[in-house]
């Protein structure tokens, strides 16, 4: 398991500054445009809650995302009086239609203003001071909270319209995003570190495969094997337990051996 960042953005103009900054390469056009560079992925979902749900599912499948994949929705939002270009982080997401509510973790928020996001399905009628308005965050959270854990899902929004400038201007979006890239990257860095920290705690699949290829383990035994190997690698990081197990005839003997090794640490 490796640390991974999955960006989800609605518009190509929002994606372009991120693609350039993180040197992402186009992977495919259909059904969504997907870009990639090592362990960073970006999908352009198009506007709306329905589209972002589909895009998240697609990206989850093709990127082999795991429990500790970071899901970052970066988009635009409107507010009564926040200045254009201000970068904020969501602390509560309300779907204006279904009233479903999500509470993103606030463990990583840097120095950003944290605010409630109301996801609209129709055009905004009236701004208010307590929340910002977007069209994707609730759909994004609906899917991501099923495939990742809360501490790895985040919605960052850049103010694109307010009472003074109510018209959303697609042409200025790229420049607003570009100005926020440094702050966005600080958040991305923090999340990446956290993802890495959690991935280290998970037993590497390729190591487990070695055992599974040599002996037949039942489902329950596999669970036990993984758990014991994971404990042992922290207790005795220099020992090659696959090598030490190699003379055993079957899975039962291997598990007994590992249990004894754990006992030695008492």
């Amino acid at each position: 398991m490796k640390p991974q960042i999955n960006f989800v953005v609605a518009l190509q103009n929002e994606a372009n500054p991120l693609i350039k900054y993180y040197k992402l390469k186009l992977l495919h056009h259909y059904p969504f445009k997907v870009y990639k560079n090592n362990n960073m992925w970006l999908i352009v979902s198009k506007v709306g809650s329905k589209m972002i749900k589909k895009a998240c599912i697609h990206l989850s499948e093709i990127s082999n995302s795991h429990l500790y994949t970071v899901w970052l929705n970066i988009g635009t939002a409107g507010h009564l009086n926040y200045p254009l270009g201000k970068l904020v982080i969501g602390n509560k997401i309300i779907d204006d239609y279904s009233k479903a509510t999500y509470y993103p973790s606030q463990i990583i928020k840097g120095k950003l203003t944290s605010i409630s996001i109301r996801t609209l399905h129709n055009k905004l009628k009236k701004y208010n001071e307590k929340e910002i308005f977007d069209m994707e965050a609730s759909g994004f959270f609906y899917i991501c909270s099923k495939i990742s854990i809360n501490e790895f899902i985040c919605s960052l929004k850049i103010i694109s319209d307010n009472k003074e400038f109510p018209e959303f201007n697609n042409k200025t979006i790229s420049s607003l995003f570009t100005k926020s890239l440094k702050d966005i990257n600080l958040i991305v860095d923090e999340f990446y570190k956290l993802s890495k920290k959690q991935c280290i705690l998970t037993y590497p699949n390729d190591e487990l495969e070695k055992f599974l290829n040599k002996w037949h383990f039942t489902f329950t035994q596999t669970f036990q094997l993984k758990k014991n190997l994971n404990k042992l690698r922290f207790l005795n990081p220099k020992v090659d337990f696959f090598y030490k197990s190699s003379s055993y005839k079957n899975s039962k003997e291997v598990l007994n051996f590992l249990e004894k090794e754990l006992m030695k640490n008492d």
């Binding site: 042992l232 207790l235 640490n265």
Partner: peptide, 9 residues
């Protein structure tokens, strides 16, 4: 999983 106390047998 990295905690010795919980790895005891």
């Amino acid at each position: 999983p990295d905690e010795k106390l919980l790895s005891k047998h």
